[in-house]
């Protein structure tokens, strides 16, 4: 209670400084929130893309079935592989003729032109994993052609990863700046109140008694900064979603990151926690100064 009164008193004394501290935390929360959304969105997208990627191996006419069977067993034992499926030319034919246009094309052949094939799904679609599988396949007999997403998918994944790294770097820069601003503002508050701190010490106050209001001040700044940051993000995302829907007809509000349940409760709690942590750490960083007062 006493500590809250002290915080209020500090706010009255140096309200403008407190507003700067709260504002900086709010900006940091907006940047961090932005990173969080970009990161989650990209991860979600990558997962979707990866689920659709597979390596397709077309087999030569008249291949040795036993040798291919051994290759499949070998591939299945690899930790990189998630699922290996042999597709006979008949199964492939049945699958293709579901499309009427392809049916017409296929009917123009005397017999089924499709080869037997193997479909390989990977646990993680990375260049290293793909290369490993391709190298194994290339060393085997009876293989006509190997097809995979190749360079385009790899480039897309690389670009998305670069975006993730850039947003993370911006996030880290803002976390550090925010910590510095909060700690320096509390240092200024401590300087402005050095006479009061001297009086407190003179009448026998412990360091803990003197420090608590300043820590609480950091936490309060963090709380308000977190709440404001969340509110700004909430408004921006809602405006963006409405505008995108109006312009393109795409409704992103069903995407799990933007559903009201996720955005209003979880995200609010996370923003407040991040803000409070920033404010708390900032004030702790500045408190070494009290001893010399």
């Amino acid at each position: 209670m006493r500590a809250f009164r002290e915080v209020l008193l500090n706010f009255k004394k140096s309200g403008f400084m407190s507003l700067i501290s709260i504002g900086t935390i709010a900006i940091t929360i907006i940047i961090l929130g932005n990173y969080f959304i970009v990161n989650k969105g990209i991860n979600y997208f990558l997962l979707k893309v990866e689920n659709k990627i597979e390596i397709v191996v077309f087999l030569k006419e008249g291949y040795d079935f036993d040798k291919i069977k051994n290759t499949i067993i070998e591939l299945e034992s690899l930790i990189e592989a998630e699922n290996i499926k042999f597709i006979s030319k008949d199964d492939a034919y049945q699958d293709f003729i579901k499309d009427k246009e392809i049916l017409t094309i296929l009917q123009s052949f005397e017999k089924n032109p499709l080869p037997d094939s193997i479909k390989i799904k990977l646990k993680r679609y990375t260049q290293k994993n793909i290369e490993k599988i391709i190298n194994i396949l290339k060393s085997k007999e009876g293989i006509e052609e190997i097809q995979y997403g190749g360079k385009e998918i790899e480039n897309l994944i690389n670009i998305l990863n670069v975006i993730k790294i850039i947003t993370a770097i911006i996030g880290i820069i803002f976390v550090i700046s925010s910590l510095l601003v909060v700690s320096n503002i509390i240092k200024l508050t401590i300087y402005a109140r050095r006479q009061d701190i001297y009086i407190f010490k003179m009448v026998g106050a412990t360091n803990f008694f003197i420090k608590i209001p300043f820590v609480l001040e950091g936490i309060v700044h963090g709380f308000f900064g977190g709440a404001i940051g969340w509110a700004v993000l909430y408004v921006i995302i809602n405006i963006l979603l409405t505008e995108i829907k109006k312009e393109t007809g795409l409704d992103f509000s069903k995407f799990y990151l933007f559903t009201p349940a996720f955005f209003s409760i979880n995200f609010l709690i996370e923003s407040l926690t991040a803000g409070i942590l920033l404010g708390f750490s900032g004030s702790i960083l500045s408190l070494g100064n009290i001893k010399e007062k």
């Binding site: 006479q195 001297y198 009086i199 010490k201 003179m202 009448v203 026998g204 106050a205 412990t206």
Partner: peptide
Amino acid sequence: PFYRRNIGFVFQDFKL
């Protein structure tokens, strides 16, 4: 701080 609680201090400039 506990030692100082046994001493009262009065200054010329009051220190209020």
